[in-house]
Nucleic acid binder design. Structure first.
Ligand code: FES
Ligand code: FES
Lengths: 146, 146
DNA sequence: ATAATTAAGGACAAAAATACCTTTAATTGT
DNA sequence: ACAATTAAAGGTATTTTTGTCCTTAATTAT
């Protein structure tokens, strides 16, 4: 479904939303450790997410680290996919054809379209906060422990 | 969603089911041309699909080529995904965690699971024939023409 | 100021996916 | 038998993805 980069990006974003706020920042190593991802590679991914501080925020220096603002928590998770350049899923044909549309449907189009719509809706409407909401008991697991 | 290899495999299978039978075989070049794929790469993919002749069949020599039996047309398209080793979609967690299950749900599990079930059902129940059935007007487009 | 800490950024490396090319084997028609 | 045709098989090359490492810049505490 998604690339490793995007999987790490989603896990990192959710974890940061679970654990951080502007008073409690998380270091790269904390995050990579928590989400079972290679630290150096995770650093690259976090750079993409902190671009313009629009999803994740960061500060350097002692007691610095990564965190997410309350405002950013309201963003739909689609923003994470956008930052990771993972938009093919929303646009492309399931058979890989350039155009996916009612006017030029491939043999799977009418079967796949309703599922695609649900995927888009899921990523458009679910916010980062909703996935990290501690009142939802299913919202904790972001690694391969257990 | 799928790798290029799998996209080509699906397009090739559908095209072969549209156009061939045991009396009318298709050459590599015909297929690659029809589905907009690199011929040499498509050759490799067809090798996987003809493995044990279980999905696509082939014969060498003049008037040889690739075709599909009536029996094989009844196979669900999941078989193509299996041949391409693309089973992660059916098993894996959308966040990339090793186990996807009700007992260890990730924060997206309960949102994603219903969609995943529909994807599985789609690939399990739709047969190659259904996607290539000429009585369905949507069943022709397997390339980027138009 | 200085040293310590932390992310940012760039160069590099390894692995996988994608694509190509050459040789071999099977089949057919002559 | 022979030549032509076609897929099979294997090796090679390129590109993309994944991952590492090292230096630089920013921030903080002393
Ligand atoms: S055209 Fe193939 S999924 Fe829409
Ligand atoms: S555990 Fe993540 S989708 Fe099921």
């Amino acid at each position: 479904m998604f690339s490793k980069s995007t999987e790490y990006a989603l896990r990192a974003t959710i974890y940061i939303a679970q654990e951080s706020n502007s008073d409690k920042k998380l270091s790269l190593n904390q995050i990579a450790n928590a989400i079972d991802s290679p630290p150096s590679f995770t650093a690259k991914i976090l750079q993409l997410l902190t671009k313009d501080n629009c999803i994740i925020s960061s500060v350097r220096g002692p007691n610095g680290g990564f965190y997410i603002t309350e405002d950013a928590k309201q963003l739909p998770i689609r923003k994470v996919l956008e930052a990771m350049d993972e938009q093919d899923l929303f646009i492309k044909c399931i058979l890989g054809l350039n155009n996916c549309s009612e006017t030029k449907p491939c043999p799977m189009h009418y079967q796949y379209q309703p599922i695609k719509k649900q995927l888009i809706k899921l990523f458009e409407t679910k916010t980062i906060l909703q996935l990290a909401d501690p009142s939802q008991p299913a919202n904790f697991l972001v690694n391969n422990s257990l």
